[in-house]
Design a protein around this nucleic acid. Structure first.
Lengths: 104, 104
DNA sequence: TGAATTATTTGATGGCCATCGAATAATATG
DNA sequence: CATATTATTCGATGGCCATCAAATAATTCA
């Protein structure tokens, strides 16, 4: 895992907001922008369009940030129908945390 | 603790090198640039001038990066004689790691 | 006090990147 | 197929920041 790349990916306010939004919703159920709640019926991540509801930025900016997060192995995405769903890669977070806690 | 600020502080290659250099030396004993070893006789951190040996940048740049790291509560510095010594703030690292491992 | 070592301040600059709008793509549904 | 929804690509731009050199400060020691 590229520690520096992961840190750089998280070290941006907008990306952090995206990250928190994705994490904020249980991990395995989709957040619905309309109801403002997590929909446990819809499996596998949060829909991008719902992330966009929470994080104020243009669609292209959101795509850009997701690319960065994905490139750092912090999230993975999957397209289902028109929507793209995104989920956290917990292993990477664990690896990052392990790095920070390293005692040398 | 300001998570974003701490991440931003670490998300730079040079600062990461500085950080690793400081961490690399036991934490409680000074690294000596000449011998290339850690001097357990000299307590409390690594001397800045020895960090400069390891991390290729100008003195002003090094000072700048230390300010950023200190401002993020990742390190603290202390002047003893001509030299400034720097040490890691482990609590902040632990808090950062805890944030990353949070399950929401 | 004068010289040497170490560190900081200041101001300038170049490069990187977050952001956007517009155009395009991908998919679903009427 | 036409339209709506969602997402991506592309190019341009403005702002931030890492970096440096030069000057100054802080401290020690001869």
């Amino acid at each position: 895992m590229d520690v520096l790349k992961a840190l750089q990916a998280l070290a941006d306010p907008t990306r952090m907001a995206v990250f928190n939004c994705i994490r904020g919703c249980g991990g395995a159920s989709a957040y619905d922008c309309e109801t403002g709640e997590c929909d446990a019926n819809e499996p596998g991540g949060v829909a991008l369009c719902d992330v966009k509801c929470k994080v104020p930025c243009s669609p292209s900016t959101l795509t850009h940030h997701l690319n960065v997060l994905r490139d750092a192995d912090l999230v993975w995405t999957e397209r289902r129908g028109r929507k793209a769903y995104v989920q956290i890669r917990v292993e990477t977070l664990r690896a990052l945390a392990a790095f920070l806690l390293e005692t040398k």
